[in-house]
Amino acid sequence: MDKVLMKGNEAIAEAAIRANCRHFFGYPITPQTEISAYMAKRMSKVGGTFLQAESEVAAINMVYGAAGAGVRVMTSSSSPGISLKMEGLSYIAGADLPCVIVNIVRAGPGLGGIQPAQSDYFQAVKGGGHGDYRMIVIAPSSIQETVDCTIDAFDLADKYRMPVMLMGDGMLGQMMEPVSFPEVKTDHLPKKDWATTGTKMKRKANIINSLYIHPEELEEVILKREEKYNTIYETEVKYHTEGLENADVVLVAYGTTARIAKAAIALAKQNGIKAGLIRPITLWPFPTDIIAKTAPNVKCMISVEMSTGQMVEDIRLAVNGVCPVHFYGRTGGAVPTPTAIFEQIRRYA
């Protein structure tokens, strides 16, 4: 497979097309607009549909309709736009519809900033919309991994009939790295006989809906979904580790921050401090086990995030008091430096 130098945002769009996504509904917002621009160029060439909606609210509801009609469909936005899509995502989860949502995170809250951030963690993994639901949330940290995760996202969405979020950040979206696009086959996935494609007078009507007026009926639907979520927790967790064997201090970081953490770990090594890294790739399902297993062997863990500390809470839940869990981060679009992270390692080593 030949490699091509590509910007993160465009790699995501191309990966979606390679995954047989033929419907994309977008809306401009820095720093992810290139995804829409790329789709605008490419979709018509592959017989697909790109539509710029009148708002992110409309876009996510177009996704709802298309997903309900049985096609692979994606939308993308950045933090403020993702907030607008939260209602739609709750409906999509509540109607068991497969789709892929890309969040190229920027600094918030409010209009915030346009530089990279990770301050949408809570919104993504704790379910930013209303009601009991989850989304699979995947956080790549390189452009190649972004391509692979985009393709995985479509399979996971179809396999579990749910929304899957690909969480990048402004840096991942804007930077360029060489990538190659693997061959994609989709024949192993379940048929979508539940979709609204028209009865053709050959079957009973299909209904896409999330409304259940009787509590017991709604509870049953929600609990059935919980079972699905538990299965995902047991089988779909993904993470990467480095240097855990004899580490005194373990950094936990994802996405762009994990790359910077590696540089800090190298600095620590030069200074005779053994530090390791746990890099969650799925933020939900969260890699609880590896963190819980590592905690007894280390002096402490440090969560490094581009926020005021959100994932740190889930790390503390996983560690459950077995070792101290500290936090270091920059926010507002500021990016932590390797030396600053190294200072933290030295401080707690």
């Binding site: 539509l51 509801n61 177009m62 996704v63 309709g65 009609a69």
Partner: peptide
């Protein structure tokens, strides 16, 4: 008796757009 979708409040035209763009012959 035809296939139906329930839309969020106010979003039916967007949902309909998604369905139509998915299968324009419907």
């Amino acid at each position: 008796n035809c296939d139906m979708q329930e839309a969020a409040h106010g979003r039916a035209p967007a949902v309909a757009t998604g369905i139509k763009r998915a299968n324009p012959e419907n």
